[in-house]
Amino acid sequence: MLKKVLIIFAVLIALPFVLALFAPKNYSVVTSVDIGRDNQTVYDYVVLLKNQDNFSVWAQVDPQMQKSYRGEDGQVGFVSAWKSDNPDVGEGEQEITAIVPGQRIDYELRFLAPFEAVSPAYMIVTPIDADNTQVTWGFTGHLDYPMNLMMWFIDFETMIDNDLSQGLNSLKSLLEAQ
């Protein structure tokens, strides 16, 4: 009887690790919105990381979070850091890693707490016509084994897509009201 209990116990402990072997490790989200403003106006706004506080869902979760900055905003190497006691916000930083003037801004998000992760993100600004611009916001993530087991139970892509879409809709409202 004890042998059966130990075998069942061992299987229960090993099962999540085995399932994690087959779980995806990467996820990617890309969403867009059309904004009724010219391309240069939109680009000039989104290239500044500090402006994300005005439209990003994550910045709205804890308006009291501590913020700090290093470098010149809108330039490669600029870092925007945050720290919050709210576990939904945690601690981390975002750095501009590449810029194609008038078109694209690449970032690296470095989450420090409540968990550590590095995720690339970007925004692409594309003119539709003289008075309308499409903004595309992309984000990719990776979960190492065995944490990737969460991919079976949490739909990261839908959660992040909702946040990015809400942020882009806030950006649209903000810029179209100017």
Rank of each mutant, 00 (worst) to 15 (best):
V42M: 05
Y43D: 04
V46Y: 04
L48I: 11
L48R: 14
L49C: 05
L49E: 10
K50L: 03
N51E: 05
Q52S: 15
Q52W: 06
Q52A: 14
Q52E: 13
D53W: 01
N54G: 11
A59W: 05
A59F: 08
Q60V: 03
V61Y: 04
P63I: 07
P63F: 09
Q64F: 02
M65E: 11
Q66Y: 04
E72F: 03
D73A: 03
G74Q: 06
Q75T: 15
Q75K: 15
G77E: 06
S80T: 00
A81N: 07
W82V: 11
K83M: 12
K83T: 09
D85Y: 02
D88H: 09
E91I: 11
G92Q: 10
E93V: 00
A98Y: 02
A98V: 00
I99R: 01
I99C: 02
V100E: 14
P101L: 03
Q103F: 04
D106K: 05
Y107F: 15
L109E: 02
L109P: 01
L112M: 12
L112P: 02
L112K: 13
A113K: 15
P114F: 03
F115A: 11
P120V: 07
P120T: 05
A121Q: 08
Y122M: 08
I124F: 01
P127V: 02
I128Y: 04
D129V: 04
D129W: 05
D129N: 15
A130L: 12
A130W: 00
D131P: 00
V135I: 04
T136R: 12
T136I: 12
T136F: 02
G138L: 05
F139V: 10
F139I: 08
H142C: 01
L143A: 09
L143D: 04
L143T: 02
D144R: 08
Y145C: 07
Y145E: 09
Y145N: 06
P146Y: 07
M147I: 11
N148V: 09
L149A: 10
L149D: 10
W152E: 05
F153V: 12
D155C: 05
D155Y: 01
F156C: 07
F156N: 07
F156W: 04
E157C: 03
T158Q: 15
M159H: 07
I160A: 09
